[in-house]
Design a binder for these strands. Structure first.
Lengths: 171, 171
DNA sequence: GCAACTGATTTTGAAATGCAACCAGTTTGG
DNA sequence: CCAAACTGGTTGCATTTCAAAATCAGTTGC
């Protein structure tokens, strides 16, 4: 059932995993947004509906991209964690962001993260992946030099939002 | 109509372009298979059907990933060409292939290309992209040093196929 | 004990997909 | 010169998948 694939081509198999309009966005929100709970993920920019989210989360867990465990603080709350397989998507996300930023009508505030990821290049991606391993896999934290990559990206995002709000005020 | 997007996030916009199970496979066959005609693309590993292919080709042309022109040698033949936007996907293809090869049940013969792309790294990708620009955009050919990247990948693929055939014969 | 919150499921309709047959013009082989 | 094969598709229809809204039952805080 699960191994009923159209072909053994790596690109095809990758598409069978996230060749839809939502799976990668969920992973994006977990990676860049630090979201871990159903309700957090439900508040995506793009407005995913709850049935789709539930379905995709289940599929991603089945595939091995995510793990799910109970939140000790709430008997009905689940915490989703990235697996190494999902963390390994960071370079792909970075390239996708760079490509989209160059060729598609992106908005400034939502593409500042992509810009910083592009400028940071593989070294930044590696640092980010290490942080995600610490956060999601319980790996030993590397030497914490300054703010985390996610914090840096988030701060840049908020700065753009603030600047654009001020510009609107003046105009 | 065309600019009715869910959000201005570069990753989301990228998914709106090829967040389906076929678009990227068509581009894969054009990039790595050198396919330029409808009937060639119809013979994909995964068995795309003609209506889907026609629809995706039209969409990809509309988006600006492909251009279409008449084949002078045959009045009913159309030639599809990659645009720079599509050629710029080569690094993403390489990463996708590398990721799939590491985390999914790929077949050996269909992943040898991905392996070579991974080993070659960005320098090989750049050479490949230059070759594609020459082939599809009419760019001036760079100094042709030895066989093209696509030929090299194709030869490696055929070698694996031949080896596996021999192994089956012995076994 | 009640409102708000949890991760879903159900229902219903729309859209995408898959399959096979078909088409009209074009080229090719004998 | 004619039939067969080839060209890029189109059409109709059944099936599958996707998506939005409403709903749900258990949990928690107050």
């Amino acid at each position: 059932m699960t191994d009923d694939h159209r072909s053994g081509c790596p690109i095809n198999l990758s598409l069978e995993v996230f060749g839809d309009k939502w799976s990668l966005l969920i992973l994006r929100d977990m990676i860049f947004g630090g979201k871990r709970h159903f309700r957090e993920l439900l508040r995506s920019q793009e407005g995913i509906s709850s049935n789709i989210l539930a379905d995709r989360l289940k599929t991603l867990v089945d595939i091995g991209m995510l793990t799910k465990r109970d939140d000790p603080s709430h008997k009905q709350k689940a915490i989703y964690s990235l697996t190494e397989m999902a963390i390994a998507l960071v370079p792909i996300m970075a390239h996708l962001g760079a490509w989209g930023r160059r060729h598609l009508p992106v908005s400034e505030e939502l593409s500042i993260r992509a810009q910083l990821m592009e400028e940071g290049g593989p070294p930044l991606w590696e640092r980010f992946m290490d942080e995600l391993r610490t956060e999601h896999l319980g790996a030993a934290p590397a030497a914490p030099e300054g703010p985390s990559v996610r914090e840096t990206l988030q701060a840049a995002y908020e700065e753009v939002v603030a600047r654009k709000a001020k510009e609107r005020q003046i105009a």
